[in-house]
Design a binder for these strands. Structure first.
Lengths: 341, 341
DNA sequence: AATCATTTCCAAAGCGCTTTGAAGGTCTGT
DNA sequence: ACAGACCTTCAAAGCGCTTTGGAAATGATT
């Protein structure tokens, strides 16, 4: 069933039917209702391609996620982020198109999306400190928003980010307040912007108390369970082991906990752990009292906010670019306690 | 830059340029090269909507994932699955469009995709035992493929699945061979088809040895870490605790391990665990010797296979529907050992 | 009853591409 | 030199929608 058939069925012109359905004022309410009813009855939905061709819009947002052949990892937070974003898209009639590209092809991927007109806007994931993609997207004249920030990028661009620096500063200060002095940082890859900010927060808190950071206590890698386990296991074997850990992800924190328990130590008594918790749907941090003390910030919410801002940017390109900094909550759980004497 | 402009630039008709670019034989190689060069030079890519409108194809595949308001969970395997699928799509010039829908709206979501012509085919995720979506999709005359199967569905449909029954049969038999007699099953939600098959495999192995299953040892729920932990913790407190666990996901297995170690027991000596391992990129099962003995089957591979079959189905609708059953490998790791005397 | 302003509707052009049916050019064989 | 056969190219229609410019119908005003 297409517009032509539907309008014939109704004895109206295509124009009128189209206007009735799209809410234009030039058509009477009586006709509009008649049209709506018929559209429902025949299950009419305008063909998206034809509509897009006529309007110049695709009603779709692109999410390009880069995958290097070296580390083929799809970030585990991705599922929750797009779940949040897609809620918003659905409300506004937008589709979501996903491209997973080798990072070497990423530039051309964006150009193609633009040239082919597949999408009306793009959300950029996982920005690095110095991310050429941002300049490239700007030059394409395609609305985009960054999930995270790129510290070295000078120009303006729309973003939604978590206040990673403050979160990790607070987490570290919280441990310092509990008397901990040797605090390890199990961070994500520090080529990623978010990880650098977290380290800054950690260092800032130490500095505020006049404590010199120990480089041996700072690790940076892809955030797997094994990485958390291996790092903690090694550090706990030292003569002067850390008494607390600040960890960048729940998954790695699970590994840290394993190393702690394997040594016969008790989490929250012998060793304290604070982790960042993205509030992933399949990795809930316990019940009433969270297992881990954590800096929590829902990545699903970030997805919703990012989508909202991007759609707004598309609708109102003249408005100033959105910058939203989400604050993480510091949730006290069972994994922290005073430093052992 | 569009076709019209490009052809004017070249002094050719739109027809010739279009044919040259699409590899039709009616155009000389000399002209074709000239056209290709110019297209490259101007970065010309045909507008996807216009092309789609003309050809009747959208060159996109839809992945609809249902999200009930009760359990808002995005399956953690999803990221890896689509990562695999998108590799194949990219090779064939297809885009991937994602819709995350409330399960109540799922039927209309499919109808809309069909009516709007957004996609040329659909991959169905997470089939239940008795899944009305399959019949519905059939009635829509839209090519589709199911990741998994629906045991109660009688009609034919294309699918790619893991041999869950055999995997869990082998896992259970492996433990039985090691002398274990009280083996717990920490399964996924048994309304899901895959979980039912896994239970069947587990029961089949017990039955083959004439061992009566103990319903108390069988659990079924959403596969979180906490669920694994809670189940194992409780069972290990019993008078007659299980000596081994068969677990449906790595994440839950991490929880089981936690409960074991918390009790001061040693994994692989006091208690054995076999888990199913989807080979997720961010949850690697250890290094040379895996941490967990596991039935491993790469969900990324499943994504690749599913995409391949679906594209094939779209290109050759007359061919018989694809049914591919992937076998899981039984990888021996450090989490299993002979039953304690 | 004639005029004008509204309201309601429509025919047709256009979005950028593919593809049909046909025409102009070039080459063979006689 | 000419018909026939091919190779190469093109104009125009059509995909399903939106939207412009305009016309018909209705109602209000003189």
């Amino acid at each position: 069933m297409n517009l032509k058939e539907l309008s014939q069925e109704l004895g109206l012109s295509q124009t009128t039917v189209s206007r009735a359905l799209n809410g234009y004022p030039e058509v009477s309410e009586a006709t509009r209702n008649r049209v709506r009813l018929a559209a429902d009855k025949y299950g009419y939905h305008p063909n998206a391609r034809a509509k897009g061709l006529a309007t110049g819009q695709s009603m779709a947002i692109g999410h390009v996620i880069a995958k290097s052949t070296s580390h083929e990892m799809v970030n585990p937070i991705f599922g929750d982020f797009i779940s949040g974003a897609s809620e918003v898209y659905a409300q506004h009639g937008y589709d979501m198109v996903l491209s997973i590209v080798n990072d070497s092809d990423e530039a051309t991927a964006y150009s193609n999306l633009k040239a082919k007109g597949t999408v009306d806007g793009i959300i950029l994931h996982g920005p690095h400190l110095d991310d050429p993609r941002i300049a490239h997207l700007k030059s394409l004249d395609l609305p985009f928003l960054v999930h995270g920030r790129a510290s070295h990028e000078v120009g303006d661009y729309a973003w939604v980010d978590v206040n990673n620096r403050r979160a990790f500063m607070r987490a570290t200060a919280f441990l310092l307040d509990l008397g901990h002095r040797r605090i390890a940082l199990i961070n994500g890859l520090e080529s990623m912007d978010f990880a650098t900010r977290r380290r800054d927060g950690y260092l800032g808190a130490l500095q505020a108390r006049g404590i010199a950071p120990d480089p041996a206590l700072m690790r940076s890698a892809e955030m797997t369970e094994l990485y958390g386990y291996g790092s903690a296991r090694e550090m706990l074997g030292w003569n002067a082991p850390p008494t607390a850990f600040v960890v960048s992800s729940m998954i790695s924190a699970l590994g840290v906990r394993r190393a702690i328990e394997e040594r016969g130590l008790k989490l929250g008594r012998d060793i304290s752990v604070i982790t960042h918790d993205d509030d992933l749907s399949y990795l809930q941090n316990g019940g009433e009292v969270p297992i881990f003390t954590a800096t929590r910030s829902s990545v699903r919410l970030a997805g919703r906010r990012a989508a909202t801002h991007l759609l707004d940017l598309i609708a109102h390109p003249e408005k100033p670019l959105a910058h939203e900094l989400l604050e993480a909550e510091l949730m006290v759980g069972q994994s922290t306690g005073p430093a052992p004497a």
